[in-house]
């Protein structure tokens, strides 16, 4: 985990090296997209993203809003190294991931990025603790270490008493909290959340937002896709995407705070 850091607070470890190696990226950015274009050929070329420049500073909390088909998910997939751009560069933690081999991108995905999905995407046959430690399994972390870390993370998200439960024994909110714990397992540079409250009722959604708020307060970088304005207002910034381009970037003067964390 040498190349990763938990967020803005101690993000100084490998900067010098990165600066020497390549043209300078903004030192404060966890993610940077430069003139990124993604084109799908479905009979005719469709530009899912059409020349996007975006910077996500370390330790920031950013929401991405836009109608369906606007390119939000493509943006998330590119940053999460699930996809590669047709043109342009994607930098994650001072590495140009768009130029990496598939194998290396998988490594970045496991170590630098934590995904939180709308449908939770937990492994149904694994317990909460096993789900949380899955990124560590593929990351080659020692078994005892994995167990310890999974327990800590689950306690952190208020599920210390659900370690051995399977997803179908947990409520939606609890599942999403397991998913968040999993996203944090490898101590990633950025947490990517795709409609994390989309499948939850409002109250549970608020709890999850409270959890994200705490993670942000602790210095994690969060990028969240949503189409609900009230959810987006928890972030510091909102990137509005339309037809594959960044329409505008909105700074939220005073992000909404969840006062009581119901964990």
């Amino acid at each position: 985990m040498a190349a990763s850091d938990s967020g803005g607070s101690d993000a100084t470890s490998d900067r010098g090296e990165a600066t020497d190696r390549e043209e300078t990226t903004d030192r404060g950015n966890a993610v940077e997209l430069r003139n990124v274009r993604k084109t799908y050929y479905l009979g005719e070329p469709v530009h899912a993203l059409d020349g996007v420049d975006v910077s996500i500073p370390r330790g920031s909390y950013t929401a991405v809003m836009g109608p369906s088909g606007s390119g939000k998910s493509t943006l998330l997939n590119l940053i999460g190294c699930l996809d590669t751009p047709t043109e342009g560069e994607v930098w994650v933690n001072d590495r140009e991931v768009s130029a990496l081999s598939q194998r290396e991108r998988t490594e970045v995905r496991g170590e630098e990025v934590g995904f939180v999905f709308q449908t939770f995407n937990l492994m149904p046959k694994l317990t909460a603790a096993e789900n949380v430690s899955l990124p560590l399994v593929f990351g080659g972390v020692d078994k005892n270490e994995r167990r310890k870390r999974a327990r800590e993370l689950l306690e952190d998200v208020g599920l210390g008493d659900r370690v051995g439960h399977r997803p179908n024994e947990l409520s939606g909110g609890q599942r999403q909290r397991v998913a968040i714990a999993r996203a944090l397992a490898a101590d990633p540079s950025i947490i990517l959340a795709d409609e994390p409250t989309g499948n939850l009722d409002q109250e549970t959604g608020e709890q999850i937002m409270g959890l994200f708020q705490r993670l942000h307060d602790e210095g994690n970088t969060i990028l969240m896709v949503t189409h609900e304005r009230p959810i987006a207002e928890h972030a510091e910034r909102v990137i509005h995407v339309l037809d594959g381009t960044v329409e505008r970037i909105e700074e939220i003067e005073s992000p909404r705070r969840v006062e009581t964390e119901l964990v």
Binding site: L82, R109, G110, F115, F138, R182
Partner: peptide, 13 residues
């Protein structure tokens, strides 16, 4: 779907 999840959290081919 499980394969997708595993790959998303860093499973190599």
């Amino acid at each position: 779907k499980e394969i997708g999840i595993m790959k998303a959290v860093g499973a190599q081919n």
